[in-house]
Nucleic acid binder design. Structure first.
Length: 372
RNA sequence: GUGGCUGUAGUCAAGCGGUUAAGACACAGGAUUGUGGCUCCUGCAUUCGUGGGUUCAAUUCCCAUCAGCCACC
């Protein structure tokens, strides 16, 4: 098996899991946040910088790399790790979500998905087999099953059909997978916001026996309490000895609440995207660095942060860089935001170890400005 | 000094007699959750250089004045 999960302990206060994930490119501490590097790069960050902030694993994307530069080219380059100069673990998303968000550019059938490239309008077809073939060529440590992510809100019968198709596709993905000893294929549980459909999906997917499972179809626009509710009845259905991955989640409160509900892995574009749009996540809440009130603010972005950006630059300078559309703006704020979330996960792991995750949540929320 | 042209938001400007003075950029605020460095939403001129006149009605026409630009001396 390419990837194995080792549970270290459970938080007595919250039930959250502390563990380790062993992969071909190293061991990861969980719960973990995975920075997203869609196009074989975490935008604005070099691999050396990612290591400096202790990123242990990053995400990349099948759909985008297939379209550009092409998985064959990356295979020729010696695989994704070598191509992008990252020797730690990589997880690739299957492209299911991209297809879902492509809107009217795509048509889903039992066989797969016909779509037009968002880059040049060219026609393409991705099936479960194709998605696995691409990911096999990329050589990522963890590959994801090609699923269908239902929108929110969605009718019950639509979600049911979609989840059943996701199960059939998961089977095909497993069959198509060429090297389960070097790459772990994770299954994805769907079912929207319907409890019995989540149960059905979990049962069907888990029956196929994957080395890890993801909860998909959340964080698609539903209210947070609803997402927490779905998680609450979904994670208990998942095996204790396998990693659990909540796809697409990345606000500080959702990360903490997700861990409390038994999630081990998260990924999200939020920290890197909002960084490029002039917003930082800090210990005292969101700081919209582009706001005029920071014109003469010579304090660090986050006075409680020890990252390179906070140690060396002021809010006034960061605001100036943003307004002047300087590249360094994206670099410095991205650096900070990723540092902040990775550091948050470290604090979460320590809190689990010390059986005080609920206390940690309450104090963190209070300082951040969330309602407890 | 003489002749001509132009003055509308921070900037570039449309409107040239008739309801709440286009648009763009900038600026200000917001959004952003398995990433299109994309983008979206909202706000921003009680007033058209200034003063007077004509008219039911003036950013629009007339006069004066001020400012800028161009040409000639």
């Amino acid at each position: 098996m390419a990837v194995t999960y080792e549970k270290i302990k459970e938080c007595k206060q919250s039930g959250a899991r502390l563990g380790r994930l062993h992969t071909p490119h190293g061991t990861i501490d969980t719960p973990i946040f995975m920075p997203v590097g869609t196009q074989a790069t975490v935008k604005a960050m070099t691999p050396e910088e990612l290591k400096a902030i202790e990123a242990q694993i990053i995400l990349s994307n099948t759909y985008h790399l297939y379209l550009r530069p092409g998985h064959k080219l990356i295979e020729k380059a010696g695989g994704l790790h070598k191509f992008m100069n990252w020797d730690r673990p990589i997880l690739t998303d299957s492209g299911g979500f991209q297809v879902f968000s492509l809107g009217d550019l795509r048509k889903i059938s039992e066989e797969g998905v016909d779509f037009r490239s968002h880059l040049d309008g060219s026609k393409h077809f991705i099936s479960p087999e194709k998605a696995v073939e691409i990911q096999n060529a990329l050589g990522s440590d963890i590959i994801m099953a090609f699923d269908e992510c239902a929108p929110y809100p969605a009718e019950r019968h639509y979600v049911k059909n979609s989840l059943q198709r996701t199960t059939r596709w998961a089977k095909r993905c497993k069959q198509a997978h060429q090297n389960p000893d070097r790459q772990a294929l994770f299954g994805i549980i769907q079912g929207g916001m319907y409890k019995d459909l989540r149960e059905q999906s979990a049962q069907e997917i888990i029956e196929l026996d994957f080395p890890g499972y993801a909860v998909g179809g959340l964080s698609v626009g539903e209210p947070k309490p609803l997402m927490y509710e779905v998680l609450e009845y979904t994670t208990p259905l998942m095996p204790q000895d396998k990693p659990r991955y909540l796809m697409g989640v990345g606000t500080p409160d959702c990360l903490i609440e997700g861990v409390i509900r038994g999630v081990d892995m998260f990924d999200c574009v939020l920290p890197t995207r909002i960084a490029r749009n002039g917003t930082a996540m800090t210990s005292i809440g969101k700081v919209v660095i582009k706001n005029a009130k920071y014109i003469e603010d010579f304090l660090p972005l986050d006075p409680n942060c020890g990252c390179y950006t906070c140690k060396n630059y002021s809010r006034a300078y960061l605001r100036h860089l943003y307004k002047a559309e300087e590249i360094l703006s994206a670099r410095l704020v991205t650096y900070h935001n990723l540092y902040f979330l990775i550091d948050l996960m470290k604090k979460i792991r320590t809190a689990i170890l010390e059986d005080r995750l609920l206390d940690f949540r309450n104090s963190f929320f209070k300082q951040y400005g969330y309602e407890v």
